[in-house]
Each structure stands twice: as C-alpha cells, then as structure tokens.
Design a binder for these strands. Structure first.
Lengths: 269, 269
DNA sequence: GTAATAGTGTCTGTGAGACATTATGGC
DNA sequence: GCCATAATGTCTCACAGACACTATTAC
C-alpha cells in the first residue's frame, strides 16, 4: 500500500516529506475546483413489482423521447440537487403511479454505471426495488396509457425487442432479488392487501417463484413462525371454503428460511 | 399513473395531444443541454476486509486533505469518465494496497448519496465490499503508513472519533453483508490462502461472526456440501495434530445455509 | 507425561416434504 | 350430488446441535 497519491503525500518518511505540503495543497485545491471532478448525471430507476392476475408483473413506461423512443423502460428520473436517493426514488414512484402515498416496500437494489449504458452521456443509475399490492385502479383516464404493468413472463415472449438502456439487466436483478428475499424475509406480505388469507400469501410465493407449493406445508411454515402473521379472528367467504383472515406480524426475518424448489434441486445435485 | 411529465406528454387522449409535441421536444432538447442535469461527483469507496491475527479487519487510509483531514477513511476515489464502476473500485484498490493483482472477492455493496454526506459538494459514492486473505507484507516502507488494517473491534474502542464522512455507516453495512454472505455462500474461502485446513476455514467464520463453532459439526457441514472444498491429499504439520489440506471447490451457494448463532437466538426468541 | 488440536462417531430434536383426511360452500 | 378449496394430521428423512472418543504432535 504505497503507490496511491493520497498515501504518498501523507507518508512520514523524510524522502517524500518535501513533496508533502505542495502535493497536499494541490490536492486540497483540486477538490474545490469543479472542473477537476468528472461530472456525472445520477438517476434513479424503479422496478416496481406487483402480483396482477396471479402473475408477477412490473411497472413500465413507454419512452416518448430519444434515445429508445417508443421502447418500454423502467420509471425513473434524475436525482435533484438537494434530494436523497431514497427520496428521489419515492418521488419518481409517486409521479409515475399517480398515487398519493406509497404503502409498499422500497429498497435500493444496486447501481449501474457502465460508461456506454446511456448513449447521450455518462449516467450512473441507482436502481430501486419496490413491492406493492395490486393497485385497485390500474389505468386511470385513457385505456392506452404510457405506463402499465407487464407480466414478467409476457415480457420475455411478447417483447422481442428488449427494454431501453440496460433495463433488462436491472429487471432481471430485481426479480432475482425479490425471489431471494421471499426466502428469508416476510416481504411477501408487501404483495397483498390486509387482511389476507394464508392462501393469498401462498399464491404470492407461487407467482414470484413460479412454482406450486404444498398447501399444508406452507400453512404450517407460516403459522409456526412466531409473529409472521397475526390472526384477525375473522374469516372470508369469497371462495369455496371459508378461510381465516390474518394481518401482518412484526417479524421481518424468517429463521429458518422458506425454501424454494430450485434450492432443493440445487441441494440434491 | 397520470401525473408524471413523461406520461402526460405521451398520453393519447386528445385533451393533451396539443401539448404533446412541444413538450416532447422540450423534453428531448433538455436532455442534451448539460446545464439541465444536476451534475454530481461519483466516487467509489472500498471496504476491504481481511482476517488479521484472527480478527476481522478493514483497510483504512488516513486523510491528508480537508475535509476530515487526519481522520481515518475508507480507501476510494473518483470514478473516471470512461471507467466502469467495478473497474474504478478495482483500480482504487490496487492503488491503495500497492498490489499488482487482486485475487480476492469484490462486489458492489450499495450506494450512499445523502446530500450532506460530503461538506464540499454533492457526492454520490458507490461502495464496494472486498474480501482478501491476509496480505503477506503488510506495511512496505515506513512502519507508520497512511494505510493500514484496523481490527473492527478495535475501531469501536480506540477510535472515539468516528471515520470520515459516513464511512462508519458504510463499514457497518459492509460487515453485516460479509457476515450474512458467509451463511449462504462459500465466500469464507476468499479469506484464506490455498491450501487451507478445515480449521482455517472455521476460524474465518469465528472471526467474522465473533462466535465459537463446534469443530465436529463445522467439519461435517463443510465436507457434506458437495464441492465446497476439494481435498488435496496433502497434510500440514504446523500445528499440534496433522491436518488435511483442501483447495476451494466450485460451489458458490450453500444449501442449506450455514447457520449463525445469532440466527438461532432470533429463532428461539 | 500434559495440553491442544484434528479427525471421527453417536444420539436427539427440529423441521421440511409427501402425503392423507375432514370440513365447507359453490355449482 | 360433485368438486374445489381450507384446515388439519401423520409419517419419514435430512440435518443441525451437543456431545464423546481417539489419534497425533508440541511442550
């Protein structure tokens, strides 16, 4: 650990002591000269997932400007000068959905900054993952809107052309994050409205993981985890048989985790 | 989903069709005007962890320039204009350690962009987590270097003053990420040199998690996971009893996970 | 010899997977 | 009546935790 500029200037050996003050000063000044910093545009992109018609879906907007005009893209926009990253993500999300408040889960996914990811200029994008229960009023106003939910499985088939920028990659990472988090957290509840039945919750797992889960085992797992869900005492009668209704509990992490089928396959290979 | 600028301009209802082209054009032009974008400085900060003297340690550098002059900070620096984020992290890492190559593990941690995190200006920092085996030559040249490894536990005690910027927070997140990843990945191997003994690996877990693990159970877990480690056929005779030597296997994920003691506590609460 | 460590074996409890069984209500 | 679904129970296997025991080497 010797070669860096910062290290060299601070070294205490007499050999470089002469150079110390001048370089430190240069360094100091350089940091206050705006032209000395590579200037970058920073955006947030949001992958808002929901379960619609029993299928994992993502909110996309159709671009009306170049580049990728007409292509579908993740909602997002520039981070404002005095705005925190989380704030920016939340603001963009409200703007795109038209909601007054966002009741779901929102977390930072990761940051994408390959130099050529935006053909116009250097753009570093901080991607966010949002989970929300299916919105009651999907498309207000016109039936052909510039923003709509797409089922993930439909995207792969229908859209031969991929999403704008590197949003395919971001979406892929987001879906994998969501799938992984259902294993060891109680985040599945973010996908349903309260109160919900155990089967509602099971259908979330089935939609996100794309598998079928054993009803009895799933129920046992959920109810045996302390405070994963809390019983409301009420039952619903919308289906064939009456089902108990639950609200979310305070537990955030699952120990042991809920296992995916793919995990079991991996385990046995 | 109606209120966003992007949506409105692309809506197909006749009410806003008049405004469409003009706003779309304005939008289009605005994106090519450099002054229209909030300009931000983007840096990478690296949390390089290692096991030194049986304790989890982090590489820190002493700042020689304002702000936080004299304070300890995570190594890092500005992302260059045509440089990918991963590249920048790797470059800064080599500069700070003086190594020719980096053989450990390096992954993006998360991005920190609170407006006031740097008093000089808006700086968005993409933090990276690096894991490496203990370096053979710790401090080349002077014995009092501007870069050194600090044991995590010593930082909490010795450094009454915290790290520069929000690096305390970043370090905390990094350590938690490392602790979590040892559970469900084989990343612990990144902390040891090959070949290694099962006990070497166990001591990694013990150092990172700060717990003592049962020798027999740990050994059984590691050897029962297919291709976690591969036997070399050789044995070491440096300790009391001869120990079998292993090399890393190809497995990346552990199923089921290696459980932390803290997990068990949580489970039983 | 003692102490420390590596390697191995054994017992037990928990929990997941694979079912089966019963109850309820829509059709 | 039939059938889909909810709720519950049962059996078995895998695996983690808590040990015990032996072998080898440094001192």
């Amino acid at each position: 650990m010797a070669a860096s500029r910062r290290n060299r200037s601070a070294a205490t050996s007499s050999a470089v002591a002469v150079d110390r003050t001048t370089e430190a000063e240069r360094d100091f000044l350089a940091r206050y000269d705006p032209a000395a910093f590579p200037s970058v545009a920073v955006t947030v992109d949001i992958v808002l997932l929901t379960i619609r018609h029993g299928r994992l879906s993502v909110l996309l907007v159709q671009r009306d400007a170049h580049p990728f005009r007409g292509a579908w893209a993740l909602p997002g926009g520039f981070v404002q000068p005095k705005e925190d990253l989380d704030e920016a993500a939340r603001r963009e999300l409200l703007e795109e959905t038209g909601l007054q408040t966002f009741s779901g889960h929102l977390e930072q996914l990761r940051t994408y900054g390959t130099p050529a990811r935006d053909p116009r200029m250097r753009v570093v994008s901080v991607a966010y993952l949002g989970l929300i229960a299916d919105l009651p009023a999907p498309e207000p106003g016109s039936d052909v809107s510039a923003a709509r939910f797409w089922a993930i499985e439909d995207l792969a088939e229908v859209e031969a052309t991929s999403l704008a920028f590197d949003h395919d990659r971001i979406l892929e990472d987001a879906v994998e994050r969501a799938r992984a988090k259902l294993e060891y957290t109680t985040l599945a509840i973010s996908f349903v409205e309260e109160p919900f039945t155990i089967s509602d919750l099971r259908r979330v797992y089935e939609a996100v993981w794309g598998v079928e889960l054993d009803r009895g085992n799933f129920r046992r797992k959920v109810l045996s985890t302390p405070d994963f869900v809390v019983p409301t005492g009420r039952t619903t009668h919308t289906g064939r048989a009456p089902a108990d209704l639950y609200a979310r509990g305070s537990t955030q992490l699952l120990h042991p985790a809920m296992l995916r089928v793919s995990d079991r396959d991996l385990q046995r290979q």
